[in-house]
Amino acid sequence: MIIDCPCCGRRPVSEFSYIGDAEAAKPDMHAPAAEWVKAVYTRTNPRGMHLEHWQHLHGCRQFLKIQRDTLTHEIFSVELVGVYASGEGE
């Protein structure tokens, strides 16, 4: 797999670290335990299109939201998320 990092360009998957399901709910800090159980343990694990978080661990260390087909491993979109998502940076 090759991921087109918005900061670094096309890089082999071995530079990246899978973080988790980007479709899973991200509970609010004070949300009840039941919501956290859902977020941490309940996964759709789809065969096909999936939104995922990856980190360019051995590169810019940025977090990416990737739309990927889990069957063919084809990647449809890569976008920067987190602190620098707006593209402004510091």
């Binding site: 973080i19 991200k26 978080h53 980190q55 260390r61 940025q62 977090f63 998320v81 987190g82 602190v83 998502a85």
Partner: peptide, 9 residues
């Protein structure tokens, strides 16, 4: 890094 970027950017 994950908590900062994904939870509290």
């Amino acid at each position: 890094e994950r908590l900062h970027n994904l939870y509290w950017p």
